Computed example of a mutant assay.
Amino acid sequence: MVREDLRAASDHLRAASVAADDPDDEQRLYEQSDALAELATADSGPDHGRLARITHALDDLADAVDDEDARESIADAKASVEAYRETVDGV
Score class of each variant (00 low, 15 high):
residue 63 D to I: 12
residue 28 R to C: 02
residue 63 D to W: 11
residue 66 D to L: 14
residue 19 A to I: 00
residue 47 D to P: 05
residue 34 D to I: 12
residue 89 D to R: 11
residue 89 D to I: 04
residue 37 A to L: 13
residue 66 D to E: 15
residue 70 A to N: 02
residue 75 A to M: 08
residue 53 R to G: 09
residue 71 R to L: 12
residue 49 G to H: 10
residue 62 A to T: 11
residue 75 A to V: 13
residue 26 E to A: 07
residue 49 G to W: 09
residue 57 A to S: 14
residue 62 A to E: 14
residue 24 D to I: 15
residue 31 E to V: 11
residue 11 D to P: 04
residue 1 M to E: 01
residue 90 G to V: 06
residue 21 D to K: 12
residue 43 D to S: 14
residue 34 D to Y: 13
residue 45 G to Q: 06
residue 21 D to S: 14
residue 15 A to R: 08
residue 76 D to P: 01
residue 14 R to H: 11
residue 12 H to C: 09
residue 83 A to L: 04
residue 25 D to V: 04
residue 82 E to D: 15
residue 70 A to D: 03
residue 16 A to Y: 00
residue 26 E to T: 04
residue 75 A to N: 11
residue 54 I to R: 03
residue 49 G to C: 04
residue 86 E to P: 03
residue 80 S to V: 07
residue 8 A to K: 10
residue 76 D to R: 08
residue 64 A to S: 13
residue 43 D to V: 10
residue 80 S to P: 06
residue 70 A to E: 04
residue 66 D to M: 11
residue 45 G to W: 06
residue 28 R to I: 09
residue 38 E to W: 11
residue 57 A to P: 01
residue 15 A to I: 03
residue 78 K to P: 02
residue 12 H to R: 07
residue 3 R to Q: 05
residue 34 D to A: 13
residue 10 S to K: 01
residue 49 G to R: 09
residue 43 D to Y: 10
residue 9 A to Y: 01
residue 14 R to F: 11
residue 19 A to H: 03
residue 76 D to A: 11
residue 12 H to T: 03
residue 6 L to T: 00
residue 58 L to S: 02
residue 12 H to E: 09
residue 35 A to K: 13
residue 53 R to L: 13
residue 21 D to H: 10
residue 70 A to W: 01
residue 61 L to P: 06
residue 41 T to S: 07
residue 34 D to K: 12
residue 64 A to Y: 03
residue 23 P to N: 06
residue 13 L to F: 06
residue 10 S to P: 02
residue 69 D to V: 10
residue 54 I to K: 02
residue 84 Y to C: 06
residue 5 D to I: 02
residue 7 R to C: 01
residue 55 T to I: 15
residue 15 A to Y: 04
residue 10 S to D: 02
residue 7 R to G: 00
residue 84 Y to W: 12
residue 63 D to K: 13
residue 59 D to Q: 10
residue 43 D to E: 15
residue 41 T to M: 04
residue 29 L to E: 03
residue 84 Y to K: 05
residue 85 R to K: 11
residue 5 D to R: 05
residue 4 E to S: 09
residue 7 R to W: 05
residue 48 H to C: 01
residue 10 S to A: 12
residue 41 T to Y: 04
residue 40 A to D: 05
residue 76 D to F: 03
residue 42 A to Y: 11
residue 8 A to E: 09
residue 58 L to R: 01
residue 27 Q to F: 08
residue 51 L to A: 11
residue 52 A to V: 07
residue 73 S to A: 15
residue 17 S to R: 12
residue 88 V to C: 00
residue 27 Q to P: 01
